[in-house]
Amino acid sequence: METTPPEQQEGGIKEFRRRPDLFRGLCWVASVAAVAILAWIIVEITHQAWPAIKEFGFSFVATSRWLPNRETFGVLPFIVGTAVSSLIALLFALPLGLAVAIFLSEDFLPPAVRQVVRFTVEMLAAIPSVVYGLWGIYVVIPLMLKFGPWAVQTFHNTWTTPGMNGAPEVQKGIPILETLFAPPSYGNSMLTASLVLALMILPTITAISRAALVAVPGTLREGAYALGSTRWEAIFGVILPAAAPGVVAATILALGRAMGETMAIAMLIGNSSHLTSSLLAPAGTLASLLANQFGEAEGLQVSSLMFAALLLVILTLFVNIAGEVVLRYTQRQTAGIR
């Protein structure tokens, strides 16, 4: 039991705090464990992936044949699938998420209405991935089964129309779009999975962007209005630029989420290891590959899946570190404005 009040000494509480005690030791161990877990995850997965790393080396990421029954494993289609699905999801989620964030931070409509929208977006974040998958099967796939043939017809197919002197004139599809919407079209496809994925990362983009927008000091907005800006001139000219680092961070962190999202994609993307350029065809991502094959894998396939998991960890860690760095920079920036 301490007998002299520590405040009487020079240094006071600080001096006192530094004395070691058992509880402090326990807390220290827990902290070290929290850090060690990340290292353990990486080491353990690398260890398990080692046979595949030795066997395939770099060709694992550069080849596109995934044939478990022939013990041939190349993960390129899944890396491409992860990148493409995440980017398409961002393409849809970023404008929409940003619009919602602006809506929530501006006073277009009364606070009660904004609260409803905010609650909705938070609900979207809380719905389990597997439920999104189920919803996708029942709602998005039927829509895609209608959209797919239409897109093929419109963007890809060649068709003939009567030419000037009665001879049939052949019309080609629209460049780029004809490769993205090439037949045959399926319900379970890259596009289906990406659309649902966009919905799933929307709350991340909205929440972080909204925080960045709200953090822009009101004095800047006043300044812009006092110079005769319309509301949107103020938003685009002053408020969004001031919040830009936060929006960038939101985008990067959402990208990280999109790359790691598993169940909804595994249920909707069709899980094919074929590399195609058509968005209407089945594809696969690293995460959906793991979800589909781990349960029944044996031998070298387990190592190869571990290798794929290692790649996924490295990719998402890299993206998340980038996001964190930008977010920290943002916080310093906005502190400077105030």
């Binding site: 004095t219 006043e222 209005y225 006092a226 005769g228 000219g237 001031a242």
Partner: peptide, 18 residues
């Protein structure tokens, strides 16, 4: 917005845009 362009305003706390 046109009125405000004809009337300049300086605020209590300086608010230069970033």
């Amino acid at each position: 917005i046109a009125l405000r362009r004809s009337i300049g305003m300086v605020f209590q706390k300086s608010n230069p845009f970033p």
